[in-house]
Design a protein around this nucleic acid. Structure first.
Length: 421
RNA sequence: GUGGCUGUAGCUCAGCUGGUUAGAGCGCUGGUUUGUGGUACCGGAGGCCGGGGGUUCAAAUCCCCUCAGCCACCCCA
């Protein structure tokens, strides 16, 4: 079909998806506000080096998935592929790190030039939170708790698992990495091609390989848990203990790692229980090194991001759309059309009802149209009734029709709404 | 970036091993006269059969290329 299309991997968000989108945003937003997270909106365009510095040059995102270009002024710019680095940048750009409250939430489109498939788009939306400048694991608890509560609010907590792990602080990770390389060295020729490369570039990433041979080799591999120094241990144990006390259910997954370079200590993911390729719905962790790589300021942080489209895929199976009640309004003769605007000007703050004004055609056509618009009823301004300052209301479900006073239309509609609840 | 499947009306699809003007259901639209919709009946519009090339007397149908969608790998939210 030679119909006009969207750019590959991009989508118009319509109808029920749009409804669920708003639901996710509004639930997440109100939870964040409950804990005084401040909304932050950063530009979609950033200087390219913001991402190349922070995500790691060897990461796939930077090496091949960024929508990067040089603009007419010679600037190297990138459509943001993720939200954490921009928020961290904004923290320092605006000296927000000098304030008491350094908790933020954001949402909006991200861009990654990948091959699209289920749950993966080139333009997709994330909702995220970031909590800066607090080294305590209690902050990790707070953001995990927030994410957990959001899963509850969206009625999907029984369809997801929370997996957690630690990748330790820098020293522990370095020690572990050496041991891991030592262990894998004898197997280096049996590993998948991808893992062979990683053995040199980013050995930790081998842990979450899906390759069967890799998995077999890894089953006997040393575990990071055995190489944690005192600080890393206290951090991770404290985190787990409190999660248990708070009755937040989680699964420990010692192979859970991160694709992006700036993480340390805790990593966590909410993963859909469905057997699907893109089943990570929310992912986060602690990134104490990030702000320093951008700005030189030693500011720690912890946060997560949630893929809104992925959440919608889950939510739409569990939740139904709550449609507003539609009521049509029209006159019996066209020379009364302007009176309709006078009526609706008093109704402008109606909460549960959407009104459709119907203009054209004879009366019968207007009824037909009202019905096709899925109205549950209609208000009719008739010539005879107009003289008496009255209106007709016809209920499309019962077929009943009654006369109401023009002045009481608002109360009447509200009553109709609750009757239909 | 690599692989598999798919691409016919607004939507969901049918069209057998190539054979005249391309089909259905739903939707859209007009009608069945008066200030009353839904149901029923009758009519209508709407397709470069994703795009390009090839084979053939003849292609929606076979072959090649390309694009897009879906799915998996890679990677990630």
């Amino acid at each position: 079909m030679s119909k006009i299309k969207t750019v590959k991997g991009t989508h118009d968000i319509l109808e029920e998806d749009s409804y669920f989108f708003d639901e996710v945003i509004s639930k997440a937003t109100s939870l964040c506000k409950l804990l005084d997270y401040k909304k932050i909106q950063t530009p979609i365009l950033e200087f390219s080096n913001l991402f190349s510095k922070t995500l790691g040059l060897s990461s796939d995102v930077v090496s091949k998935e960024m929508f990067a270009f040089i603009d007419q002024g010679g600037e190297h710019l990138t459509l943001r592929p993720e939200g954490t680095a921009p928020v961290a940048r904004a923290l320092v750009s605006n000296s927000l790190h000098e304030k008491q409250n350094q908790k933020f939430f954001y949402y909006g489109p991200m861009f990654r030039r990948e091959k699209p498939q289920a749950g993966r788009l080139r333009q997709f939306n994330q909702f995220g939170v970031e909590y800066f400048n607090q080294p305590s694991f209690l902050c990790d608890i707070e953001v995990i708790f927030l994410a957990n509560k959001l899963m509850n609010e969206l009625n999907i907590s029984e369809y997801v698992n929370l997996e957690i792990n630690t990748i330790g602080n820098f020293n522990s990770r370095k020690k572990y990495q050496e041991k891991l390389i030592q262990y894998l060295h004898p197997y280096r020729n049996e590993l998948s091609d991808q893992s062979k490369k990683r053995l040199i570039k980013n050995p930790l990433r081998i842990l979450d390989s899906k390759n069967e041979t890799d998995k077999k080799i890894l089953s006997q591999a040393p575990r990071i848990g055995d190489f944690l120094d005192k600080e890393s241990q206290i951090f991770y144990e404290g985190l787990k203990e409190l999660l248990v006390k708070l009755k937040v259910r989680f699964i420990e997954n010692s192979k859970l790692v991160r694709g992006l370079d700036y993480y340390n200590h805790s990593v966590f993911e909410f993963i859909s229980k469905e057997e699907k390729a893109q089943n990570t719905v929310l992912a986060g962790g602690r990134y104490d090194g990030l702000v320093e790589t951008i700005t030189g300021k030693d500011i720690c942080g912890v946060g997560w991001a949630l893929g809104i489209e992925r959440i919608i895929l889950m939510v739409k199976k569990k939740l139904s759309v709550k449609n507003k009640i539609i009521i049509s309004i029209f006159s019996t003769s066209d020379n009364l059309n302007h009176e309709i605007f006078k009526i609706i000007s008093d109704l402008k703050d109606l909460k549960f009802i959407s009104l459709n004004i119907i203009y054209g055609g004879n009366l019968k056509k207007k009824f037909v149209k009202a019905n096709k618009l899925k109205s549950s009823g209609c208000i009719i301004l008739g010539e005879d009734e107009y003289k008496k300052k009255e209106l007709i209301y016809k209920d499309f479900i019962t077929g009943n029709q009654l006369i109401i006073k023009g002045s009481s239309i608002k109360e009447f509609l509200q009553k109709e709404h609750f009757k239909n609840e």
